[in-house]
Amino acid sequence: MRSLKYLGRLLKELGQYAWQNKAWWLIPLVLILLAFGILMGVTQTTLPFIYTMF
């Protein structure tokens, strides 16, 4: 929950930055990077339970 709150804040501020500085390229790049980040994060957190998939 707490992570989601701060994710929302980060996305909002990145959007504001892009708007203010007309750095539109930042939006798709950040979304891709965040998606990668979440994928890597999820993989790394679930890996310790991988033995249950044997």
């Binding site: 992570s3 701060y6 804040r9 990077l33 890597m40 994060g41």
Partner: peptide, 17 residues
């Protein structure tokens, strides 16, 4: 650099919390 940014450096408020 990028993995560290994605994992830690973009999450300063969360880390402070």
């Amino acid at each position: 650099a990028l993995p560290i940014w994605m994992k830690k450096k973009l999450w300063i408020p969360l880390q402070i919390d």
